[in-house]
Every structure is written in C-alpha cells, then in structure tokens.
Amino acid sequence: MKNILLPTDFSENAWNAASYAVELFKNETCTFYVLNTYTPHIAHSRFMATNVSGDMMEDAARTQSEAGLANLISRMHTEFNNPQHRFTAVSSFSMLVDEVKAVIDEYAIDLVITGTKGASAIDEVFMGSNTVRIIKTVKKCPVLAVPQNFKFKTPDEVAFATDFNRFYTQSELRPLLDMAKTFNAVIRIVHVQQKITALTELQKFNLSMLRKYLKDVEHYVHTVSELNSISKTLEIFSNELDIHLLAMLHYQHSYMENLTREAVVKRIAFHTQIPLLVIPELGMSGSSHSKKEQSLSASE
C-alpha cells in the first residue's frame, strides 16, 4: 500500500493535483492523506474589542477546514469511486510546511503531490510559493509538483536530468524506478552542458552505476548543449521528445538547486507544463518507505 500526501487549499489548482494523483495510482492500493492547514488571521487594532476571542476565530477556521476536507473527499469518491483508494482528512492549526513534515513522519508517507500555480506553473515553483518551500524542506520522500492546467497523461516518457557529478544510491532512485516499472516508461537521462566536453572519470563511473540501476528499464542518455539556461534547455528537450514527467534529484549544486537560483529573466522562459518529480538526497539512510519495509520484515 502506498501512502500519498495531498496538501490542499481547496483551490482548483489543488484539485487538479489531487485528480492527477488518483489517476496516477488508479491501479494501486493507496491511502491518500488530504491535508489542510489553517492559521486564522487575528487583527491587531486598538479599536478591536478586548473580549474578541482568538479561540473563537480558531474554532471558525477549524470548522471551515474540516468542512472543506469533507467536501473534497466526497467529491473524490463521487468522481473517481476507486475501491482501492482510501482517503483520510488531516486538518491542522499549523504552518503548511511544518505540518507536511509532521504528517510524513506520522504516516510514513511515500510521496507528496502538490499543485503549482500560474500560467508559467513551473516558474511559479521557483518564486517563493508553498511548493518550493515544501521541495526545499522535505528530506524523507519525493515531491511531485503538478502544473495548474496539466491534464493527466500516462508517464511513459520520463526525463531524468543529471550532471553525473554525484553518486546515486538505489534508495534515491527507487521513485524513478518504480515509476518506470509501473508505467513501462522509457527513461531519458538528460545531461545539460554549457559546452559539450567529455565526461570526467568520476562522471563516467556515476553514469555506469546509474545505468546498472536502470538495467531492467529501457533508457537512453542524451547530452545537450545549454540554451540560455538550464531551464530553457530542459523545456525544449521535454517538448521535442514529448516528455510526460521530469525528474531531478535535489542536492547541493544539483540542477534543481541551480534552477531555483537562475536569474528571473532566464526563468521566465521556463513554461513547461509537465509534472516535476523532485527526489530528495537520501544518501545511504534510505527512504521512509524502505525503513518501514525493514521494520516490517524485522517483526515477522
């Protein structure tokens, strides 16, 4: 069983991401934890009556949050009605990112799926939205960011952007491998270079290990010249090869980190409308999912 976290603010953008999630896992047994956080605004004014209770405002916000979650889950059952899917509402008086981390720990979450806003949805991810805060903060499971207007397509063409400068562990690549095997997807490893040069010995070794991990998956290596920026290059690559999902590992000096630091002028051109799977740096510690498996096997 997969445990999927769906943060929501009850917008159409969040609904679209949740719809994508249930379509993505329509053939798998899943529990979806639908999370809404609320922090009621308490006005500070010398004209405000001193007996106005913050507790009353919190109660009203909680009621609104719980009602919104109930309506959303009811809509999920009505529109998708998948007997393999179970939904659990999580309403919390908390900051979103803090609660996302807490829920990941409490329910052994395997994947967070969230929406991105705006006409240039991926660009919005890199401009201080909740999504980028989640991406930067979550270290124990992948985050899948779904653009606002993206309608579900089976991800049978997946791009994995990397520079081969870092050794990958099998636990880090598990989300990519699972996706490829589930959807019989082709993995296109894309390496963006400012100037096409031969790989170093370290890069060659890391590439060979990557290919070893992907030995049971159809995959290809693409080396492409950087066009103005990494983001623009990946956008063009994704469009030309009809990529349905772009995956990256998030670690120091990675493409993902570089994308968040690119000049705004360069980022504006990054209008790709495909989901972005961000895999955190796990190292040898493994994912929460693998730890859960280890504890289960130890108890048997």
Rank of each mutant, 00 (worst) to 15 (best):
T37I: 04
S74D: 04
N81H: 02
A298Y: 14
A61W: 11
E262K: 05
E218K: 04
D156S: 08
T116C: 12
E23C: 01
Q294K: 15
E240R: 10
A180R: 04
S287V: 09
S120V: 03
E218Y: 07
T223V: 05
D59P: 13
L35Q: 02
E79T: 07
S229P: 12
A298E: 14
E66I: 08
T63W: 11
G286R: 15
N82E: 03
L296W: 07
K292D: 04
Q193C: 00
A89Y: 10
E28W: 07
V125T: 02
V52P: 13
E218P: 07
A247C: 09
E124C: 00
L259F: 04
D216W: 03
F152V: 03
A14C: 06
Q193H: 02
E172A: 09
S94T: 04
I187N: 14
L241T: 08
Q294D: 10
N81C: 07
I73A: 02
I187Y: 10
D9N: 08
V190R: 09
Y20W: 12
T29S: 06
F164G: 01
K181I: 15
D216N: 06
L202Q: 14
F93W: 10
R133Q: 13
E66C: 15
E281H: 09
I236N: 07
L144V: 03
K2F: 14
T169F: 09
K151A: 11
E66V: 13
N3W: 06
A70S: 12
S229V: 05
Y168G: 08
P40K: 06
I274V: 12
N149C: 11
E79I: 08
N258I: 01
A17E: 06
S229Y: 05
V132T: 05
D156T: 07
I187V: 13
L69S: 05
A49L: 09
N71K: 12
V217P: 09
L282R: 15
P7W: 05
A43G: 15
D9P: 02
N71E: 05
F150H: 06
V278A: 10
F47A: 14
G68T: 01
V186G: 11
R261M: 08
H253E: 13
S19R: 03
M1A: 11
L69P: 00
Q194N: 11
A60E: 13
K204G: 11
D123Q: 08
A121H: 01
F164K: 01
F205N: 11
E157M: 13
K291D: 07
E240H: 05
I42S: 12
E281P: 07
V158M: 10
E257T: 14
A159E: 02
D110T: 10
V265R: 07
S94W: 03
Y107F: 14
T114V: 15
S238G: 10
C30K: 02
E218C: 02
Y255M: 14
